[in-house]
Design a protein around this nucleic acid. Structure first.
Length: 597
RNA sequence: GGCCCCGUGGUGUAGCGGUCUAACAUAACGCCCUGUCACGGCGUAGAUCGGGGGUUCGAAUCCCCCCGGGGUCGCCA
């Protein structure tokens, strides 16, 4: 090795030792006589002193150093003179008296600061990702990611799971996200698809008798990105035979709890993880991935609203809709422009409009509320008793602001749910040190495509229906519940899974309801049905989004912060400049011709 | 594809119709400096304000189009 120690690991115990270090010049402080260098490597920073009286040539070279020069120095670890210790540095009690220096490689001035905490435009960071990754924050994130993956492998290994790699070149199927396709050279006109998840393969591993499988699996989905979504991402994928829903949820909870307590002990968890049904989540939070770090629960106010003289409320309810509300604590003093902003927000979420009722502009007991204190454009259509009844149901007090939305049930839930999430963030309600994990259960098995009217899987077509609901598959498919579950944290879907169908008969039935012809089923899923004929065990599993977990543990704003080389919103790798054109020769070999568009 | 936000020296910001011959910090370059640690001091250089068009006597500033980045809806079994 070109170095005998790492910069960050030196301390008083090494005083008097001869050491050789190598790393990057983090900063130079040139006093004309003395030159100080902060030498940085992955493990930290140590100060090197160049004294012209002790090593003249060495000092001359040191004056040439600039930020990010890669150097190697030899010298003695020395106690710093009394009064010059730096308590801000872990190595601040000591310094290296340089005797020899080699410039291994000079550096151009970097396009942005490596040694500062300044926010830099993201496309510049992505273009020079190798420099961005030199910064301490991203180094720490990469280290955390490594530790999480190591923890997961050890955790499952200790519980009898074995990691199996599944292929990246697999078969395209119509369900789910858009596939990334890879053209076949050997088979003209045919394509592989990159896996959206190893779903079918892990089920086949269960048929194979592996019983407990897991994998840190790369997955690919050709859909638009989001702050928490990349075209390629990593799943913690697992599958077990002879398992029940409770086993899987318990295992996942244990994994998360032990992981957080070991790797992020300063973060808090709610234990045990709350379990909500899908219906409860929609009713209370208007979301299938509610942020449980704050309450702001929604309540149905239809019965009260129906008695009001407000025609919007009355007609919404008369046509099968409902009126629901949430309480924004302490927002009774919102200005007209703030209220208008909320209204616009609600409209952008799909509400026809937002009704606000300010319960006075100072806090106090609800009993003191009078009509003169109420500020609302609909005040004249409501009685004081009605307003008080709504406020009571929403657990509001004086000085709060009630937000009401009327309309079709589903739309009211989701728009108010989005408003709730946004309001929580605006009011800084979430405790940033809290990881509010929960499980969502009892999802419906099927939902109708609004355009085609065709039934679609809510989870995926291999999901086991709740046994007592199976007779409903023919009569009322929309009422069939599934044996699927999601893991949620802080408003993010962290993972989802299910017990799987393992008999040909039931699987065929579900494919039939999903609208596949016998021929299509044979062509697309014949291998699965055939496998079920050879003693497939009952099985189930789950897959977690590893990147999102790291994002939450690292307190990062986006998933790009926890991926070494992420893609931009338009799915471009700015470091490598991918995707890119290919030669005509490559296209010809792949039997491809570009369309002129 | 829709909607919203952003784009000023290398970097981060200010300026939002004339006083901009574009300011500040930092980085860079040169000189001085033996105990600094975001070292300090003096000096030098560096952006025609993402691109194009328009309004105006006058545009970094207002309008339109385009490009790039981000957020979100659609999409994500």
């Amino acid at each position: 090795m070109l170095k005998t120690y790492n910069c960050g690991e030196l301390n008083k115990d090494h005083i008097g030792s001869q050491v050789t270090l190598a790393g990057w010049t983090d900063r130079r402080r040139d006093h004309g006589g003395l030159v100080f260098i902060d030498l940085r490597d992955r493990e930290g920073i140590v100060q090197v002193v160049f004294n012209p009286q002790l090593a003249r040539e060495c000092h001359e070279i040191a004056t040439e150093l600039r930020n990010e020069y890669v150097i190697r120095i030899s010298g003695e670890v020395a106690q710093r003179p009394t009064g010059t210790e730096n308590p801000k540095l872990p190595t601040g009690d000591i310094e290296i008296t340089a005797q020899k220096i080699t410039i291994l490689n000079p550096s151009k001035t970097p396009p942005f600061y490596i040694n500062g905490e300044v926010e830099v435009e993201e496309n510049l960071r992505l273009k020079y990702r190798y420099l961005d990754l030199r910064r301490p924050r991203l180094q720490q994130t990469m280290l955390l990611r490594h530790r999480v993956v190591k923890f997961i492998r050890d955790f499952f290994d200790a519980r009898g799971f074995i990691e199996v790699e599944t292929p990246i070149l697999i078969k395209s199927t119509p369900e789910g996200a858009r596939d990334y396709l890879v053209p076949s050279r050997v088979h003209a006109g045919k394509f592989y698809a990159l896996p959206q998840s190893p779903q079918q393969l892990k089920q086949l591993l269960m048929v194979a008798g592996l019983e407990k499988y897991f994998q840190i699996a790369k997955c690919f989905r050709d859909e638009d990105t989001r702050a928490d979504r990349q075209p390629e991402f990593t799943q913690v994928d697992l599958e077990m035979s002879f398992t029940e829903e409770a086993d899987i949820l318990q295992l996942m909870e244990e994994m998360i709890v032990v992981m957080v307590e070991k790797l992020k002990p300063e973060m808090r968890l709610i234990k045990p993880f709350p379990r909500l049904t899908y219906a409860e989540a929609m009713e209370l939070y208007g979301s299938d991935k509610p942020d449980l770090r704050f309450s702001l629960e929604m309540r149905d106010l239809s019965d009260i609203a129906a008695q009001s003289d407000f025609s919007v409320f009355r007609s919404a309810i008369a046509s099968g809709g409902k009126v629901k509300g949430i309480c924004a604590p302490g927002c009774g003093n919102y200005s007209r422009s703030q209220l208008e902003e909320l209204n616009k927000l609600a409209q952008s979420f799909g509400a026809g409009g937002l009704v606000t009722i300010a319960l006075g502009n100072v806090s106090g007991n609800l009993d003191e509320l009078t009509m003169t204190l109420v500020k609302s454009v609909v005040a004249k259509y409501l009685t004081l008793d009605q307003i008080k009844a709504m406020a009571t149901r929403l657990n509001a007090s004086m000085g709060d602001l009630l937000l009401l939305v009327a309309g079709k049930p589903r739309s009211v839930d989701t728009t108010l749910g989005s408003l709730r999430q946004d309001l929580g963030r605006r009011l800084a309600l979430p405790d940033t040190n809290l990881l509010a994990f929960s499980f969502l259960v009892d999802f419906p098995l099927l939902e109708r495509d609004e355009k085609t009217g065709q039934w679609q899987s809510v989870h995926h077509p291999f999901t086991m229906p709740v046994e007592e609901d199976i007779p409903l598959l023919d009569s009322a498919p929309g009422k069939v519940r599934s044996r699927s579950y999601d893991m949620i944290c802080n408003g993010y879907e962290i993972g989802g899974g299910s017990l799987r169908i393992y008999t040909r008969k039931l699987q065929s039935k579900v494919f039939e309801i999903l609208g596949y012809t016998d021929e299509e089923v044979e062509e697309l899923f014949g291998h699965m049905l055939e496998a079920f004929d050879y003693g497939a065990p009952p099985h189930g599993g789950i897959a977690l989004g590893l990147d999102r977990i790291i994002m939450l543990l690292a307190g990062a704003e986006t998933i790009r912060e926890v991926v070494a080389f992420p893609k931009s919103q338009s799915a471009i790798d700015l470091t490598l400049n991918a995707p890119s054109s290919v030669t005509e020769k490559q296209l010809t070999e792949l039997h491809l011709k570009l369309r002129n568009e």
